[in-house]
């Protein structure tokens, strides 16, 4: 076989394989992407909550996107405790002022950032939340202080529609 013929065969091999690979990828992607959140799941992206009944020192838990959201109306002591913490003492430094724009209201996902359990209210060494699964302690701002969780509990996008209604998402 001459050298020229071999080269032509090589080109065909490479071109066929390349086109085949692109075709296979084009077929595989829909198979993978179908597992991502579908349109009906995404459509449930926001929820409105009436918080008029909530008194200071209490927490309301609502479901948003299948996850619990803690709405805590904090007492004056809790706010002071959260705001007096030094940044150096935090595992994931975040100012309470940034987490709770309106200091009385703390809104965050009630999901432990370790492995996703729901922490318990008014528990733990920092008067905030305690996760029973693997022992993470959160303070009155929902910030991780002790335990295996790497981050503070997440503050979702939310806004006050009016004085008594919070829209999450």
């Amino acid at each position: 076989m001459s050298e020229k013929k071999t080269k032509r065969r090589d080109f065909l091999f490479t071109a066929t394989t390349a086109v085949g690979a692109v075709g296979a990828a084009a077929v595989v992607w829909p198979m993978i992407d179908q597992m991502n959140p579908d349109a009906s799941v995404k459509a449930l992206a926001s929820t409105e909550v009436d918080v008029s009944s909530l008194t200071p020192g209490n927490t309301l838990t609502v479901l948003w996107r299948g996850k619990p959201v803690f709405i805590r109306r904090r007492t004056q002591e809790e706010i002071e405790e959260a705001r007096s913490v030094k940044m150096e003492d935090l595992i994931h430094p975040e100012k309470d002022e940034d987490r709770a724009k309106n200091p009385e209201w703390l809104v965050m996902l009630g999901v432990c950032t370790h492995l996703g359990c729901v922490p318990l209210n008014d528990k733990g060494d920092y008067n905030g939340w305690f996760c029973p699964c693997h022992g993470s302690h959160y303070d009155t701002s929902g910030r991780i202080r002790k335990g295996p969780a790497p981050w503070n509990m997440e503050v979702p996008k939310y806004e006050f529609v009016d004085a008594n209604t919070i829209k999450i998402g």
């Binding site: 993978i32 597992m35 991502n36 959140p37 579908d38 799941v41 996107r65 299948g66 996850k67 370790h114 492995l115 996703g116 359990c117 699964c133």
Partner: peptide, 27 residues
């Protein structure tokens, strides 16, 4: 929830993988 959240430990893509496994924002 706990076992699928193990994948969230993967840097950068972890959260995306967990959402993909769930097909939503939670189990």
């Amino acid at each position: 929830t706990v076992i699928t959240n193990l994948f969230s430990a993967i840097p950068l893509v972890g959260e995306g993988i967990v959402t993909w496994l769930w097909g939503g924002y939670s189990v």
